[in-house]
């Protein structure tokens, strides 16, 4: 082996070791979460790191506390609806801002960006009043509606559409395609990775949404996972086995979505740079 190759090999090993350490740190809490779901509360607070035999018991306890399937369904339903609507509406807005620039729109755009900075707690009381006046309390619509127009996503899409060649749009216009047709048929498709990234973002945001659902949801039947977690975590006596299992159940679906979407996401990027 030449010297250069040896150095390369050494560097490669270093690279893999470093990343492996990063992976260990990243993944360890997930392992703990999983092992915790199979342990009793006493074992968890006592620092037991291995898998235990309490999974079934934890599941029974959790079932007794809440209708887990219903909670899961509520969370999936609100999250999917939200993800679909928000990326659609924000993508259109981002496209509008980028490809039809005008002074008025830039002012509106600046407003969008500015409002990213208003803490949600400052908008909560007025928002609650609105939901209450519109008779929308305790509905999933009320969870979804207020945050569909997400300034960050608008910003993200606008940035992304910059890379889409305007000449292609103009060419399509010459061919007689309508503006909306151009957007839905021509522009959206090559931007697959952008949409995947935005979808992951929106999905995570809604899946983990806490403060606002807490405020508007009134009944047990409409609860989402984060609300269940927080009520489990704050009992006088916290059953950590049950809580860990709930955390696992709340986290698994999002990991699955992430893994499947991520493949598409990475593929999209690799594909577009080829």
């Amino acid at each position: 082996m030449s010297k250069e190759k040896k150095i390369r090999l050494f560097k490669n090993i270093l690279l893999h070791l470093f990343l492996l350490a990063a992976v260990l740190i990243s993944v360890f809490p997930f392992y703990w979460m999983l092992s915790g779901a199979t342990n009793s509360s006493v074992d968890i607070t006592g620092g037991n790191m291995w898998f235990g035999k309490n999974l079934k018991e934890n599941w029974t306890q959790l079932q007794n506390t809440a209708n887990v399937f219903l909670v899961c369904w509520n969370t999936i339903k609100t999250t999917l609806l939200y993800t679909f609507l928000s990326i659609l509406i924000c993508a259109m807005a981002g496209y509008g801002f980028e490809k039809y620039r005008s002074k008025g729109k830039n002012v509106v755009y600046a407003m969008f960006l500015l409002s990213m900075m208003i803490p949600f707690s400052a908008q909560m009381i007025p928002l609650f009043k609105m939901a209450s006046k519109a008779n929308m309390l305790d509905s999933h619509t009320a969870i979804i509606l207020p945050t569909i127009a997400m300034p960050f996503l608008v910003f993200f899409f606008r940035q992304s559409f910059q890379s889409y060649p305007t000449e292609l749009i103009e060419a399509a216009r010459v061919d007689g395609a309508g503006e909306f047709r151009i957007f839905f048929h021509l522009v959206m498709l090559p931007m697959k990775s952008t949409f995947a990234a935005a979808a992951i973002y929106a999905f995570m945001k809604q899946w983990n949404n806490y403060l606002w659902p807490l405020i508007v949801i009134q009944s047990n039947e409409k609860k989402t996972f984060t609300l269940l977690l927080s009520s489990l975590a704050s009992a006088y006596y916290v059953d950590y086995g049950q809580l860990m299992l709930a955390i696992v159940l709340a986290t698994l679906p999002i990991i699955i979505v992430f893994l499947t979407m991520q493949k598409q996401f990475v593929e999209g990027i690799v594909g577009s740079s080829k």
């Binding site: 047990n220 009520s231 704050s234």
Partner: peptide, 12 residues
């Protein structure tokens, strides 16, 4: 219908 929340959440 007994709705279970966290104590902090009841106040919020």
């Amino acid at each position: 219908d007994v709705v279970s929340l966290s104590k902090e959440d009841v106040y919020v």
